[in-house]
């Protein structure tokens, strides 16, 4: 039981780290501001979610758990607001997103 919990905690923490690094990598790789926001969104939701869930599992249920869940709740409630404020400010400032051409076929 103890072992199973540890394995699950490891998986969650490492998964969270993976998504965080991927999100940061996308921040560098993607072509324009509008697409980079998507990449930052992965870090805010899945990256933070998995990592903090792993820490929760590792710490067992104490007051620490409550604090971790509160951090997660704050991130989940504030990140869309910040993201929307940023996108709205960019759009109002007249920055045009780079869009896919219609004849290109686009995704996969």
């Amino acid at each position: 039981m103890e072992l199973l919990r540890d394995i699950l905690a490891w998986g969650l923490v490492l998964g969270g780290c993976f998504f965080t690094v991927v999100g940061a990598f996308g921040l560098v790789r993607l072509p324009d501001v509008y697409t980079r926001i998507h990449s930052a969104g992965i870090v805010d939701t899945v990256g933070a979610g998995l990592l903090l869930a792993g820490l929760t599992l590792y710490g067992g249920f104490t007051i620490v758990t409550v604090k971790l869940l509160l951090i997660l709740a704050f991130i989940f409630f504030t990140s869309p607001a910040a993201c929307n404020a940023l996108a709205n400010a960019m759009y109002s400032a007249g920055i045009k997103p780079v869009l896919a051409k219609d004849d290109e076929g686009g995704g996969s």
Binding site: T20, L27, A40, V43, D44, G47, A48, L51, I71, S79
Partner: peptide
Amino acid sequence: NAFGTKTVL
């Protein structure tokens, strides 16, 4: 902003 989220983690 993304850096800040990572700082929290």
